[in-house]
């Protein structure tokens, strides 16, 4: 053993839990909403006076054609919201979900009248461990436990450090929406 080990101490992870540390973490919400669709509309097109929304149900054929652009699991239902200022179409906001490695991510892409992406916002994001929240054993460790925390924005476990989650599936989702947008504007 090297000399510098002297300053290190070793504990058992199990003993941390029994020391009551897990009680410091209030229960995680299953899915957190960061931005509502209405907020996303206003953020992307603040100059709009009217939003026309509809739900696009993608046909298997459409989904296959989008798979050729970029492959990612998509729900097949996309909300399309047009932003207008008077009779002028400012652009389109698409709200869509993609399946990431383990979780669905709801996001909004604003595409301007020039066809360029104006903004990309995550509306709803299941924490990277959201899938485990639904498993009873994980849930149980927090059952009935609540702690009054001395700050008001840390109301769930969000500081999971130690996992870099690739967001490549989101990039794929955006590429698909851009392709879909091009198809729809062409067929107009």
């Amino acid at each position: 053993m090297s000399k510098s080990c002297d300053s290190w101490s070793t504990v058992s992870l199990v003993s941390l839990a029994s020391a009551g540390l897990s009680a410091l973490c209030p229960p995680t919400v299953e899915a957190a909403q960061y931005l509502s669709v209405e907020q996303a509309e206003k953020a992307a097109f603040p100059e709009a006076d009217r939003f026309d929304a509809r739900v696009l149900r993608l046909t298997p054929e459409q989904l296959r054609s989008l798979d050729a652009v970029a492959s990612v699991r998509q729900r097949g239902e996309v909300r399309q919201i047009e932003a207008w200022a008077g009779s002028k179409l400012l652009g389109t906001l698409y709200v869509d979900d993609v399946l990431g490695k383990v979780e669905w991510v709801t996001y909004a892409v604003a595409i301007g009248a020039d066809g360029a992406v104006r903004s990309l916002e995550i509306l709803e994001y299941r924490e990277t461990h959201g899938y485990e929240v639904r498993t009873p054993s994980w849930r149980k460790q927090f059952a009935g436990r609540r702690l009054e925390t001395p700050f008001h924005f840390g109301d769930d476990i969000k500081n999971i450090s130690g996992a870099t989650l690739s967001c490549s599936h989101l990039t794929a989702g955006v590429q698909r929406l851009l392709a879909l947008h091009a198809q729809l504007t062409k067929s107009r």
Binding site: L13, L24, C25, H129, T149, P150, F151, G154, I157, N159, I160, S161, G162, A163
Partner: peptide
């Protein structure tokens, strides 16, 4: 103010 820290196993 303090902020909770959680790491993945």
């Amino acid at each position: 103010l303090r902020h909770p820290l959680v790491v993945r196993h």
